[in-house]
Design a protein around this nucleic acid. Structure first.
Length: 276
DNA sequence: AGGTGCGCCTGGAGGC
DNA sequence: TGCCTCCAGGCGCACC
């Protein structure tokens, strides 16, 4: 489940491998990911040089000298890694990029929830998938923005933090972790979160994301870094995937261990003692 | 119009 | 062993 730290870690790896390189060939081995690929996809990419690689929310943006940007989303199970130039493609290697130095980068995505699209390099602000996204949590996110956005909202804070229009880049794991560090129960209506709590929540989001970045992201199922290495933030979880285990530093035991509930069809984890 | 739930997908885990 | 069901959840969209 690539969220912001996993996408950012991927980008850092891809920059080393791809920036400044020309795409010699693009092997398309599927017609469709989450959406059909854009028309003449391979032809529009072949021969272009990768000027820079940037990120918006969970989207990877490869900016090309053709004037277009290749937008990539890893979905639930996607990864972009360097693969052997000789070996046969693996199952679920859907797109394989061959660079002008003959290195190969494969987009592998078992569940095909990923996305690829092409758009003008000037369209980052207007592309359908990008235009409504909220502030970057490690960039422009402020307490005032959160206060304004959450005001009057009845939906649970958990669901609101997953909404990319509220804040960019968070997913199920880091929302649970950030709410834990802020001491806020995931079920609380967004509009009922106080200014004092939001003043804890915003730094908690930044703290969790920075810690995950430092760990190279979270590797639970499919995610690996661009160089194939695993992230290890899953060893640092305070509450996520820790049902019935004590939360870190919690002196309470027995019934007051980490609880798992389902919100909007997704698991939330929280400590009933530390989060209210 | 805000909020909810579905569908897209596959692999792995657990039950029988 | 093998088959079945469930679960993981990002995100657009249909629906109320």
């Amino acid at each position: 489940m690539p969220e912001l730290p996993e996408v950012e870690t991927t980008i850092r790896g891809l920059r080393t491998l791809m920036e400044g390189r020309r795409l010699k060939a693009v092997d398309v081995r599927t017609k469709k990911l989450r959406f059909p690929l854009p028309p003449k996809f391979a032809a529009r990419l072949a021969g272009t040089r990768i000027l820079s690689i940037t990120r918006r929310a969970k989207y990877i943006l490869l900016n090309l000298d053709s004037g277009e940007t290749l937008l990539v989303h890893l979905g639930m199970s996607g990864r972009m890694t360097q693969v052997s130039a000789k070996a046969e493609p693996e199952k679920h290697d859907h797109i394989i990029f061959t660079l002008d130095n003959n290195k190969r980068i494969a987009f592998n995505d078992p569940r095909r929830f990923g996305v690829m699209d092409l758009m003008p390099i000037t369209a980052h602000g207007t592309h359908k998938l990008l235009r409504a996204i909220g502030p970057e949590p490690l960039g422009g996110l402020t307490v005032e923005h959160m206060l304004t956005t959450l005001a009057g909202k009845k939906a649970p804070i958990k669901n609101l933090l997953l909404d990319q229009r509220v804040v960019a880049g968070l997913g199920n794991i880091y929302v649970s972790e950030a709410l834990f560090h802020a001491g806020i129960r995931p079920t609380r209506p967004g509009g009922k979160i106080t200014r004092t709590e939001i003043k804890k929540l915003v730094p908690a989001i930044k703290k969790v994301l920075n810690a995950a970045l430092k760990a190279g992201g979270t590797s639970m199922r499919n995610y690996v870094q661009a160089n194939g290495e695993l992230g290890y933030f899953q060893d640092r979880f305070a509450v996520y995937d820790r049902e019935n285990q004590p939360c870190p530093g919690c002196t309470c035991r027995g019934k007051k261990q980490v609880k798992k509930i389902v919100q909007g069809g997704r698991s939330s984890y929280f400590c009933p003692v530390k989060q209210s």
